[in-house]
Amino acid sequence: MNHSLPTSIGSAGSYHYFAVITACFTFLLIVAGALVTGNEAGLSVPDWPLSYGSLNPPWEGNIRYEHGHRLVAAFVGLLTIALAVWVWKKEPRRPVRKLGWIALGVVVAQGILGGVTVLWYLPAPISVLHACLAQTFFCLVVSLAWLSSSAWAQRVRDRSPGLPLNRLAMAAAGAIYLQLLLGAIFRHTQSGILPHLLGALLVTLLAGWLMARVFRSPRASSVLTGAATLLGVLLALQLLLGLASWLLRLATADAVQPQFPVVAVTTAHVAVGALILAASVILALQSWRVRSEEGRAESRTPATPVNP
């Protein structure tokens, strides 16, 4: 199976900025979703798809968070329809065209899941899936933005020994996604913190290994080193936010309503988690490109004659 993606973006660059805007609004949507959970606002609007039978419900109490989340979600849905059509029209690379339609399918599924969470009173499995699908969709849109960027077309070389960079980057991205899943399970089921702590350890080890691998590589591109630096900074920030979030939870365990510091820190924790995942996806895509380049270079190299 050929894993390589064509490296020339051709006319795909035309939708790049639109994909970036969609990614930014998706990030905003993730923040809005985290605010809904943090403020215990998930069921403040009992009906769906309308809110109190209207597009403009009373803007009171927790309805602000829930209806605000729905409005941003609807806007992201519209952006994604436009993006998928644009990609389909302009994108010369078939796998990337597919990615546009997959993103559209995921955002539709995500909207339905959002409705199901409301109509079925926040069943934990659906809430966890809703949280994880949000991150999946964010990854897809970030990927579309990255694959249509000029940075993607930058040449990359990696001849360092050891585990191939692309495998390490994919493993790190997978571990980060798993960690987001564990975080969502912890948040929505009030289960123990231990799996999430072990996930943090795994992510720190893999991300540290990946960063070391990128920085040790003598000819790593500026794209790779930039993404690895971003990953490291975000990871350090995320560990601090996680610790602060946990301490604040303990300090406010007997609170009778959501506390602003807890909501602010846990929302930031979710948001930075999404950015870490995005950085790891960019690293994985770019390191995949390394392999593609090398694969092509090797296929162009004439076979060495064998001495009799």
């Binding site: 995921v106 599924a109 899941l113 499995p125 659906i126 899936l129």
Partner: peptide, 24 residues
């Protein structure tokens, strides 16, 4: 219709079925 659509569809179907079991 396409292989790449199967994953989200199957995932959703499985989770909806699972959540149905939890409706009280």
């Amino acid at each position: 219709l396409k292989n790449y659509l199967c994953l989200p569809v199957a995932l959703l179907a499985a989770l909806f079925a699972g959540a149905c079991g939890s409706v009280d």
